[in-house]
Simulated scan of single mutants.
Amino acid sequence: MARYTGPKNKICRIFGEPILGSGKNLSKNSNPPGMHGANRKRKQPSEYAVQLKEKQKAKYTYLVLERQFSNTYQEAARRKGASGENLIKLLEARLDNTVYRLGLAPTRPAARQLVSHKHILINGESVNIPSYSLKPGDVIELKPKSKVNTAVLSQVRSKNPNINWLDFNEKELKGVFVAYPERENVPENIKEQLIVELYSK
Rank of each mutant, 00 (worst) to 15 (best):
Y100W: 13
V186R: 05
K191E: 11
N169V: 00
L102T: 05
E66K: 06
L91S: 11
E75A: 11
K118F: 05
P109F: 09
Y60M: 09
E188Y: 05
N162D: 14
L194W: 15
K145Y: 11
N25T: 07
N86F: 13
L26D: 08
E197C: 00
L63P: 03
G23V: 01
L26P: 06
S158L: 04
E85P: 00
V176K: 10
R101I: 02
C12D: 14
Q155L: 14
P33V: 01
N160R: 05
R157D: 09
P109E: 09
V64Y: 04
N25C: 05
L142T: 01
L104G: 13
D138K: 00
I140R: 02
G23M: 09
S131D: 07
K28A: 13
R67K: 15
R78P: 01
S126N: 03
K55H: 08
V178A: 12
L102Y: 11
V127P: 08
A105E: 13
L121M: 08
S154H: 07
A105R: 15
E192T: 03
F177R: 11
F177V: 01
E92Q: 03
S126V: 06
G21K: 04
E125T: 00
V156E: 10
H36W: 11
E141H: 00
P144R: 05
A2Q: 14
H36V: 03
K145W: 10
Y73N: 07
V115E: 14
A151L: 10
